[in-house]
Design a binder for these strands. Sequence first.
DNA 1: TTTAAAATGAAAATGATTTTCATTTTCGAG
DNA 2: CTCGAAAATGAAAATCATTTTCATTTTAAA
Lengths: 149, 149
Amino acid sequence: MNTLPLETTLTDWLNRLQESGYRSTDRCEAIARVILSSQRALDPVEIFDAARAEIPGLGLVTVYRTLQKLEELGLIQRLHQEEGCRRVLPAVKGHQHFLVCSSCGMVRYFEGDNLAPLFEEITRQTGFAIQNHWLQLFGLCPACRAASA
Amino acid sequence: MNTLPLETTLTDWLNRLQESGYRSTDRCEAIARVILSSQRALDPVEIFDAARAEIPGLGLVTVYRTLQKLEELGLIQRLHQEEGCRRVLPAVKGHQHFLVCSSCGMVRYFEGDNLAPLFEEITRQTGFAIQNHWLQLFGLCPACRAASA
DNA sequence: TTTAAAATGAAAATGATTTTCATTTTCGAG
DNA sequence: CTCGAAAATGAAAATCATTTTCATTTTAAA
């Protein structure tokens, strides 16, 4: 897999943090790198464990604090699942949504949803003025699909 | 508002519980009634407070235990929101989804989403075999829309 | 009726997250 | 560079939601 997008995004994240008055630290960078290089959504303890490979003295509290900053800046978001809503992912941009593999947990982003006609229909039916929507899809990723066949 | 659907559903819920080997108690019925008669999604403490109007000695633990049963039977589901995922609602049926008012919290169910074409497009783009989806809409209900105008 | 299984409330336990606090680190001003 | 104020850090304690334990009560079916 090409690592360029990761490097680019990591730099973007670090810039965004700095612009917002946060200071640049090894811990923050390690945590950001863990989140950005994962194919799955990770929970705070998973991030903690992965980041400690790089920063042995890291505290779990720092993970929580860094997640707060990243979430505040809209760089990450939670993945809501039946099992819980603790895992985080790089946030979707614009009209992206994500697709979660129900077998391995891998997440894939996709573009474009034209839900406008559905929303018009709903407004007609209910009188609600729709402002926002969450669409989350679960399915089998190509690898798990192949493995289960 | 017509109370017939509420009575019907309450009876359905109590039957479902009984069929599953759970016993019929005043607390369970009070909790079910609170959930079914609310226009909003409620969290365990809100349910507790409302149900204590009817059953003064009720314990919060009983609310949690009853919610587990109702969730296990698929009668309620959690409402996932930015602020948290603690509130519950009567579960949607079949292809229903719900619409949450971002001002007053009122929830309205609606039918019918034809997302099949979107899913086909996504399968083509990503190779994922889609099994399941969550669609949640946020907007202003007619009353809040009128109030804000 | 009787009785075994289920339900209950109170208190304790658990698990996740946040706060506090003393210490260390970052970074901009000089 | 070097200083110092602001921010970041880790450890321990605090908080908050939820679950478990346990002794007692209630339900429902024989």
